[in-house]
Amino acid sequence: MELILAKYNYWIYVFLMMIGFYAMIVKNNLVKKIIGMSIFQTAIILFYVSIGAKKGATIPIIEHHAHSGAIDPAHYINPLPHVLMLTAIVVSVSTLGVALALILKIYHQYGTVEEDEILEQIQ
């Protein structure tokens, strides 16, 4: 019981990642594959952000009057994973843009975004 309470968040993140991975390798439609990649990315980002979470701590913005005394790091959530993942989200939207541009190009060439029909036309 204690194991479940301590770990159920991680298990749901792994489950989300499995959904995204399944869509990436099994789905036939290229846009569906991109959606799967998006879900995969957010699941990993979610896992990273959850590493920094602390019970009983507040958001990582220092109170203005608090800096006269010593600041206890246990009162503030770990900001480092937030910084790394903030840039990762913005990079993920630009990779999404490049992927969609490639899909548009493929559609103009083959008239479809289904993987098996494209493979038939190539052969």
């Binding site: 019970k55 990582p60 220092i62 800096h67 790091p73 503030y76 770990n78």
Partner: peptide, 29 residues
Amino acid sequence: WADPQSPASLHVSPHYIQETMKETDVSNV
């Protein structure tokens, strides 16, 4: 999950949290 004593929260980040007001004058860490 959300353990304050997890290894990720013990090494670099306490320095950022404690020193940001003194070193950069920016309260959003």
